[in-house]
Amino acid sequence: MTPGRRFSAAAETYENFAGVQNRVAIRLLELAQNEMPRGGPSRILEIGCGTGVLTRLLLETFPASRLLALDLSPGMICAARKRIANPLDTLGWVVGDAGDLPVHSVFDAVFSSSVLHWADSPQAAMREIARSLNPGGVAALAVMTKGTLAELHAVRRRIAPDNLPSADLPSPDLLRDAIGDAGLVIRKEAPVEILVTYPSAHSLLNALHDQGLTGGRFSTSGRPLSRTQLRNLIAAYDRDYSGPEGVQATYRILCLIAEKSSPCRCPGDLW
């Protein structure tokens, strides 16, 4: 995507979070496809395969590649493995952590969609991604960033200003720095903003709970909201963010393509 188009992508509207995951995975692949090493990636690592939304697309897009799908959750991998046929036996599964990848430096491409915002340390995750790549290898990452669920955060700040979440999603700059510090060079980036419509604030909160977005360090503080605060939050959200179809919630995702530079022979090395 050209820089001019980078910030012009209009927000898209979806009816549920699965739609968001699917759209982000497709956008990431579009962005990555022409940036792959020459001859296509021989080995691909997918970090955080979840239920296999991106895994399936990767198998279709790179039928000649060997794919290793990694997730922190054995349950997710079992679910993904049941859903995805792999007649050519090019797909392997492993349970592992993005901060301590259990792999050698053998991959031509690392993909990760809508999951690295969970990493305890984005810096450690980026270092591990860089380590797992061959020289000239490419990382294609879609990361949920600050500004996601901005409506909910705004309402919460008003309802319970002394009881705010202890952590926030990473900012684009923090991600860029982490990638650069890990020794990767950013080739392309594309912010994606997606609006999801929920029937009500109550159903939004239930959906976030199901996605695992509540209860995590991004939404909890030392104390849970009281029953009254929760009721006030739902009422304020319904009042302030209602549209004809229900209430809206914004997701912000940054798609990044970064390369591990090949070792170059500097002029000084000749002597």
Binding site: L68, G92, P102, V103, H104
Partner: peptide, 11 residues
Amino acid sequence: TDDLLAILACP
């Protein structure tokens, strides 16, 4: 498989 074992490492 041997191929899988060859790319896995101690975390």
